[in-house]
Lab assay of single mutants.
Amino acid sequence: EDPKKEILLAMLMVDKEKKGYVMASDLRSKLTSLGEKLTHKEVDDLFREADIEPNGKVKYDEFIHKITL
């Protein structure tokens, strides 16, 4: 499956209130437990690539855009 789609799906599952962003810690939890599970190192690399703080907010569109360039 398309990794971009899988990450967006994980974000939507976490963002039940439809705020347009999720906490990095919640996204990490989903990405390491769903679908093609990522390792913590892979998530760290994704966050670093997208300039996301480990305890920060992750906005869908910015995150998807940064990791798919």
Rank of each mutant, 00 (worst) to 15 (best):
E6M: 05
Y60T: 07
A24Q: 05
Y21I: 09
V58A: 05
G56V: 02
I67T: 13
P3Y: 13
L12G: 13
L46M: 09
T68R: 14
K18P: 08
I7Q: 15
R48G: 06
V43M: 07
L38V: 06
L34E: 12
F63G: 03
D51F: 03
H65K: 14
D61R: 08
I67Q: 09
K59Y: 12
K19C: 11
P54L: 05
I52G: 02
T68M: 09
E53A: 12
K18A: 10
L34T: 11
D26Y: 05
G35W: 05
V43L: 08
K57W: 14
K57S: 11
E53M: 09
L38F: 15
E49L: 12
V22I: 12
L46P: 01
D45Q: 11
V43Q: 03
L69W: 13
D51R: 11
H65S: 13
M11C: 13
K66D: 00
V58W: 07
T39P: 11
L9A: 14
K19R: 11
I64E: 07
H40M: 08
D51S: 07
N55P: 01
H65R: 14
G20D: 14
M11G: 12
I52Y: 03
E53T: 09
A50G: 04
K16F: 00
P3L: 15
I7G: 13
L12T: 14
K37T: 11
H65W: 00
T68D: 15
D51A: 11
V43T: 03
D15R: 04
T39N: 05
Y60M: 12
E49P: 01
E1G: 11
I52M: 04
A10T: 06
S29K: 13
N55E: 10
H65N: 08
I52V: 10
T32P: 01
E1W: 05
L46K: 07
P3G: 00
L12A: 15
E6D: 12
K59R: 08
K18D: 10
S25N: 11
M11V: 03
G35C: 12
K66I: 00
K19T: 15
A10C: 02
L38P: 04
G20N: 10
M11E: 14
I7N: 14
G35R: 11
K16R: 10
R48P: 00
I67G: 08
F47G: 02
L8I: 05
A10F: 04
E53W: 00
L12D: 14
T32N: 08
L34G: 13
E6R: 09
E62F: 00
D26G: 01
F47H: 00
E49F: 10
V22S: 02
D2T: 14
R28V: 02
S29D: 14
G56W: 00
L69A: 15
K41C: 03
D45Y: 00
N55R: 04
G35T: 09
A24V: 02
V58H: 01
Y21V: 12
D15Q: 09
I64L: 13
M23F: 07
T32F: 07
K59I: 05
P3V: 05
S33C: 09
A24Y: 07
S33N: 09
H65L: 00
K16M: 08
F63A: 10
V14M: 14
K59A: 07
E53Q: 11
A10K: 15
L9S: 15
S25D: 11
T32M: 12
P3S: 14
A24P: 06
D2W: 03
K18T: 06
H40S: 13
L9I: 06
V22W: 01
P54M: 05
Y60V: 13
N55H: 08
L12K: 15
K41M: 06
L38G: 04
G20I: 00
N55T: 08
T39D: 08
F63E: 06
L27W: 01
D26W: 01
K37V: 09
K37S: 11
K41Q: 11
V14E: 15
T39V: 01
M11I: 05
E49M: 10
Y60F: 08
T32A: 09
M11N: 11
I7T: 13
G35P: 09
M13N: 15
P54W: 02
L12M: 13
E6W: 00
D44F: 00
S29T: 12
A10Q: 15
G20H: 05
T39L: 01
K18G: 07
E62Q: 05
L38M: 14
T32D: 08
R28Y: 06
K18H: 08
D26T: 08
M13E: 15
T68H: 10
D61H: 04
D2N: 08
K66S: 10
K18I: 01
D61C: 02
L8A: 11
V58P: 01
S25Y: 00
K66L: 06
L12S: 14
P54N: 09
A10D: 12
M13C: 10
D45M: 06
M11R: 12
R48M: 11
H65E: 15
D2R: 07
L46Y: 05
G20T: 07
L9E: 15
E53I: 06
R28D: 01
V22H: 03
V58T: 01
D61S: 11
H65A: 08
R48H: 04
S25T: 08
T32S: 06
P3I: 15
G20K: 09
D61W: 01
H40Y: 12
M13K: 15
K4V: 13
K66H: 12
Y21L: 10
H40D: 10
I67E: 12
E42C: 06
E17V: 06
E49R: 03
D15L: 13
K5S: 07
I64P: 02
Y21C: 06
I52Q: 05
L8K: 02
L34Y: 12
E49A: 09
G56C: 05
D44A: 04
E53F: 01
A24C: 05
P3H: 12
E17M: 04
D26S: 05
V22G: 02
H40L: 08
P3R: 15
V58M: 00
S25H: 10
F63V: 11
V43I: 11
S33P: 03
D15P: 06
D26C: 01
L27E: 01
D45F: 00
I52L: 05
E49Q: 10
D44T: 03
D51M: 09
R28M: 03
D51C: 07
K4I: 13
I7L: 15
K19S: 15
V58E: 00
E62T: 07
F47A: 02
R48D: 10
F47S: 02
G56Y: 02
L27K: 01
V43C: 01
K59P: 10
T68L: 10
T68S: 15
Y21P: 04
A24E: 05
I52R: 03
D51I: 02
I7S: 14
E53V: 04
D26P: 00
E17H: 10
H65D: 13
D15A: 14
I64W: 07
A24I: 04
R28S: 01
I67R: 08
F63N: 02
A50D: 02
A10W: 07
K5C: 00
D44S: 02
H40K: 09
